[in-house]
């Protein structure tokens, strides 16, 4: 139940100090700058949206010309390109990466946090050192490595290799972050669980992992989003346009002079962006805190 604010010129009710002219001017300038920047952000994004629906465009995007609402670019995208393949591929890779990362890192994070074993410090240092080497350092070898393994193990697809690369690249930093989080969980909980009858695996499964859920969610989220944003790795490893991920796939719509489909690209970009943006907005707090709690590979 709220009360109406009573307006009374004689009484100054605000908690803050009254506005001086200097402060008023600086406030106005602040607003101008902020609104200006908001415009700078929103205009290009709005253009992407508008272009996807602008039927008055052929193969090239035009802005400021006649506007005719149409869904023909979307139709083109769905029917004439491998868009749905790209979506499926990306989702498969993203989910698999997230799951694999979670599986591996949940165990290593637990092991490094709760056990003192020989080689622990040394391997932790090595992990951190490896973490600083960017993934692209190995691109020369990846392609050939895959051929070798594929010859020995049938069914070892390029996507599988891509997933392994994504997961492997994240093991170091994610273990470190998770370990840090689990370190913050009191070991008395482990003791109580042992007295209650839990062995190592049960402590892991019933006590530690449920408590670490927030951090696990962050790790899963980052591992899931990663493949959506990456252009370089799929462009190196995947050779069949049908097997591309979204980044590489959409690029094909605009890099071929003879097959230019810019509006379709805008449409595809819009569709890709919407779920990710929603994800980011809904979980921005967790994502930022996850990043700042440990140097995550950019």
């Amino acid at each position: 139940m709220s009360r109406k604010k009573t307006k009374n010129d004689a009484l100054y009710l605000s908690d803050r100090q009254p506005l001086t002219t200097a402060k008023l001017i600086s406030l106005i300038i602040s607003y101008i700058l902020l609104i200006f920047w908001a415009f700078v952000i929103l205009w290009p994004l709005a253009q992407i949206v508008m272009s996807s629906f602008n039927g008055n465009q052929g193969s090239y995007i035009s802005i400021g010309g006649e506007y005719k609402f149409s869904l023909k670019h979307f139709t083109y995208l769905f029917n004439e390109t491998y868009f749905w393949n790209w979506v499926l591929n990306t989702i498969v890779v993203a989910v698999a990466t997230a799951l694999l990362t979670l599986l591996i890192v949940s165990f290593t994070g637990y092991a490094y946090s709760r056990f003192r074993f020989s080689g622990r410090k040394a391997s932790l240092m090595t992990i951190m050192l490896l973490q600083t080497v960017p993934t692209f350092a190995g691109i020369t070898a990846f392609y050939t490595l895959h051929s070798i393994v594929a010859a020995v193990i049938p069914g070892f697809t390029r996507q599988l290799f891509l997933i392994l690369i994504y997961a492997g690249g994240g093991i170091a930093s994610n273990t470190f972050i998770l370990k840090g989080y689990i370190d913050g969980v009191s070991t008395e909980l482990d003791d109580a669980a042992r007295i209650d009858g839990c062995g190592n695996l049960q402590v892991y499964r019933l006590i530690i992992m449920p408590i670490a859920r927030p951090m696990l969610a962050i790790i899963a989220l980052w591992s899931f989003i990663g493949p959506f944003l990456d252009y370089m790795m799929p462009s190196i490893l995947l050779n069949d346009p049908k097997s591309y991920t979204l980044a590489t796939g959409l690029h094909t719509l605009i890099n071929d002079q003879y097959n230019m489909q810019q509006p379709a690209f805008a449409a595809g970009g819009l569709l890709t962006a919407i779920p990710i943006v929603i994800l980011f907005i809904a979980l921005q707090k967790e994502l930022v805190s996850g990043l700042s709690s440990g140097a995550v590979k950019g």
Binding site: L189, D191, I211
Partner: peptide, 15 residues
């Protein structure tokens, strides 16, 4: 777990 003991910790250690 087989000693027929129960323990109360300083920080309670509640799950």
């Amino acid at each position: 777990k087989d000693r027929e003991i129960a323990m109360v910790f300083q920080s309670y250690a509640l799950y």
